[in-house]
């Protein structure tokens, strides 16, 4: 907390992403991007999530390339354990045949899990390192250097995931049920009478839209809250050590659970989209 005048400043700093945008003066960062509007990029979110995703896929890809059917290495056994866990989850909930669902579920589960797990890294470590680099490398005020490493505490990440899933829900609904079947599902349920078509349509549309919305807000809310509490605990002096420990232990449960819920609900929603009536 050395650089910050008030607790408020500290919390605000730790909850702000590193931003990048392009203006008339060229590419600018952080505070200069405040009035730009939509075309701002959170470079920390994107960088960390890409780094995590590429690391995960690289590891799994290498294991897959060298996979033996005989006695597996320890890494292969671990990767196979994860893959089998996801495969079992998919097989228990999704009864259609799709080559996409299982890899999608695997990507979501492992990627979200790893992004969530960055929440357990010390809250000050990466902002401090980034501040040092900014100060001594570029001569910036460390207070103006932002580094929020947990990508799932950024609503853009969680919404990107749920919008991806939502597009797949629409795609599979149209593919399996056809335009006619999908329209019928939206207008003829739950009350199967022509007079209730507008009523049904409103209800069903809300149901449909609530899925990606709840999916992303659940993950975002959980992670944002947990990150905020880590930051709050960090402001209370020496007592923070046992509290950090307790909160971290609790999050060993919460973080995988959130990743699992996201994967499971994705499978369930897609299975509903593929179901024929």
């Amino acid at each position: 907390m050395a650089y910050y005048e008030t607790t408020q400043d500290y919390i605000n700093h730790h909850l702000t992403n590193a931003r990048m945008c392009s203006t008339d003066e060229g590419i600018v960062f952080n505070k200069a991007c405040e009035d730009v509007g939509f075309w701002v990029w959170h470079i920390d979110t994107m960088g960390w999530s890409a780094f995590i995703g590429i690391s995960f896929l690289f590891l799994f890809w290498r294991v897959g390339k060298k996979a033996t059917t005989g006695v597996p290495t320890k890494t292969q056994a671990f990767v196979e354990m994860v893959v089998e866990f996801v495969d079992d989850s998919v097989k228990s909930s999704f009864h259609g045949s799709s080559k996409l669902i299982a890899p999608l579920a695997l990507t979501i589960f492992v990627w979200v899990l790893l992004m969530n797990l960055t929440d357990l890294l010390p809250v000050d470590l990466f902002p401090w390192i980034a501040g040092m680099i900014g100060q001594y490398g570029f001569g910036m005020d460390p207070k103006d250097v932002y580094m929020k490493i947990v990508p799932t505490t950024d609503i853009n990440t969680t919404f990107a995931l749920s919008i991806g899933v939502f597009i797949l829900i629409i795609f599979y609904s149209l593919k399996i049920k056809g335009i006619k079947g999908f329209t019928k599902e939206l207008t003829m349920q739950p009350l199967n009478h022509w007079a209730f078509i507008p009523f049904n349509f409103v209800i069903e549309t809300v149901t449909l839209l609530a899925r990606p919305l709840s999916l992303s807000l659940r993950l975002f809310g959980n992670l944002y809250a947990s990150e905020l509490i880590f930051i709050l605990i960090a402001t209370i002096g020496y007592l923070q050590l046992p509290l950090h420990f307790a909160w971290s232990v609790f999050h060993i449960l919460v973080l995988p659970l959130q990743a699992f819920i996201f994967m499971m609900l994705t499978i369930v929603y897609l299975s509903l989209a593929c179901e024929e009536h």
């Binding site: 992403n17 509007g37 939509f38 075309w39 701002v40 990029w41 959170h42 979110t45 994107m46 999530s49 990508p151 950024d154 609503i155 853009n156 990440t157 919404f159 990107a160 995931l161 919008i163 975002f220 944002y224």
Partner: peptide
Amino acid sequence: MNFNATLIGQ
């Protein structure tokens, strides 16, 4: 929490 181009990137 504000939506911006990061969404597209992600």
